[in-house]
Amino acid sequence: MRRYFGRKFLIYALTFFVAVTINFMIPRLMPGDPVRSMVARAGMQTPEAAATMQEYYTRIFGLDVPIWQQYLNFWAALLRGDLGISIWLFPQPVTGVIMRAVPYTLALLIPAILLSWFAGNKFGAFAARRKWLDNTILPVGYVLTATPYMWLAILLAWALGIIAGIFPIAGGYSFSLAPTLSWTFVGSLLAHWFLPFVSLFLVFFGGWAIGMRNMIIYELEADYSHYLQALGAPQRLVRKYAFRNAALPQITGLALQLGVIVAGAVVTEIVFSYPGLGHLILKAIENQDFFLLQGAFLFIVIGVLLANFIIDIVYVLVDPRTRTGMGGGSA
């Protein structure tokens, strides 16, 4: 058991190191010079003033030292929990900017991922081998997963936001409100949250439902299902076992999709101008904000690793077959 988790931990640590290194490199490989564009925006009259300003910013952001030293400084700062200063929102620290965006992303993603996984699996299992449902509602699932995401999102925003006028289509809360802890504000938050949530939920839901339906059909044809039926076990028990076993690949699927989902949320947040991490990433790229981009990517990396680690543990709990491989057959 300890060996298993020790090995896992080592792999995660290695992945983290590589991912952070790539994080460091990507913004620096982008064309353009963020400091120069900042100076240009400031509109200095004399070349001397511009040069002074350029030098000042370069020093502040630590870009005046060779790249390998920047890299070492970056790790040292990272271990102190310091992600640097945002270029776009100068002079706010990146940590603060990200911390303000993270709650929005999590509030959007976690319910969308988990609810769609849960509901999609339940529904898929229920629809499998029930002719009427299988023939009517599952094609809808196929359409949902096959739909390009931004198209679905725009369609929803257009239908429910612009035509029906029920939901607002942009922002995290109403532009006329300041963040306070009042019912009006919470109501506004929920109203703005709804459309991005539903669009994500629908797309994921279709995929999970189809996957589960196919898995259940496969499991119902497995020998142990036939055996139980030959023993006269009621359908409820057979389906319960089939569901439990069919859920295993779905759990892996959940872990794999978590990585992709962050990218999905970028599009959602852009379509609905939702002030989460995805929105920040777009802004950081537009403004060549190295530090903000690094910070946002770091968050995504940590998120994916954490999710995978949790799934690893869940897998050990639900599938006895993984347990035998853990302690060299001592289980």
Partner: peptide, 23 residues
């Protein structure tokens, strides 16, 4: 038929190796 299965008539299947739920 469920009333008769297991109590009255039973089959030992060809696939005894995989007849039990693995989990």
């Amino acid at each position: 038929m469920n009333d008769f299965r297991f109590r009255e008539v039973f089959i030992i299947p060809q696939y005894a190796m995989s007849a039990m739920n693995p989990t």
